[in-house]
Design a protein around this nucleic acid. Structure first.
Lengths: 139, 139
DNA sequence: TAAAATTTGTGCGTATGTATT
DNA sequence: AAATACATACGCACAAATTTT
């Protein structure tokens, strides 16, 4: 599975595709540390900057998280809190701004927020840890 | 409002902050075209690559969209379709992978997807055009 | 129609800084 | 202290899409 500099798809997207496949297929399990930027660059014969871009793609998709000085890790599933709704409500989602991400303790990219509106009550929830359950008539 | 190379916050984030403020305050209205990479680089005395990174931040937040050869534009609000739910259902959100984004006709970054599960029925919806309405007892 | 200019995209190399091991 | 690893920033070159001349 070699990268092709002449292909239509950019190198950094091709590399992101390869790693995404490894994650979705389970070859890279949750919690596992990816190889370093330099290792990946050498193995795939691309520049370090190209690898960085590929990892940025995967961070934006919420598949990995990166810690400076440590490395990049496949995201582990978070325990999901079920948010119970009985009455009328609206639910939407969007990306957080940096202040919201900081407040919710989520990465700058990769994790959307759920907005739950019940009357005047509006809740902002990190989407990676919450699931809204609509349960009519069980007050 | 000059950028500070010695500040704790990286230059590209400082620049993203400046532009985000302009958008949220309305100084940059929906639909408006941003200045070009080179213009922004010259005005703020940073490299073009730094501007690109700043715009990538704003794309990931869903605030702007960029078209090659045209420029970057402040996102215009989309008409929201209300998805009506009467019975039991679960709603969650996450970032799409590239295939899903393409199918839904949304950018690679910036727009989460809403997942609505009603029994065996599972719907994937672009979050920028849908709002889920829980309306119990109105079959 | 054609050419040129504009604008963003991709890729690399390099240097420096910061955090972790 | 030293090595490793990621983050930031810049410059350059070329490609690709669009707009203007």
């Amino acid at each position: 599975m070699t990268l092709d500099p002449h292909a239509d798809r950019p190198l950094f997207r091709q590399l992101a595709d390869v790693i995404r496949n490894d994650i979705k297929s389970g070859r890279l399990a949750p919690g596992v540390k990816l190889r370093s930027l330099h290792q990946l660059a050498a193995e795939h014969e691309v520049g370090v900057a190209t690898v960085e871009e590929a990892l940025a793609v995967l961070r934006a998709e919420g598949l990995i998280r990166t810690q400076k000085g440590r490395g990049s890790f496949v995201v582990e599933p978070v325990d999901q809190v079920e948010v119970e709704i009985n009455g009328e409500a609206w639910v939407s989602a969007r990306m957080p701004d940096p202040a919201e991400a900081r407040e919710l303790g989520i990465p700058a990219t990769g994790v959307p927020v759920l907005i739950v509106e019940e009357g005047d009550d509006v809740r902002l929830l990190a989407a990676d840890g919450h699931k809204v359950h609509f349960r009519p008539g069980q007050k």
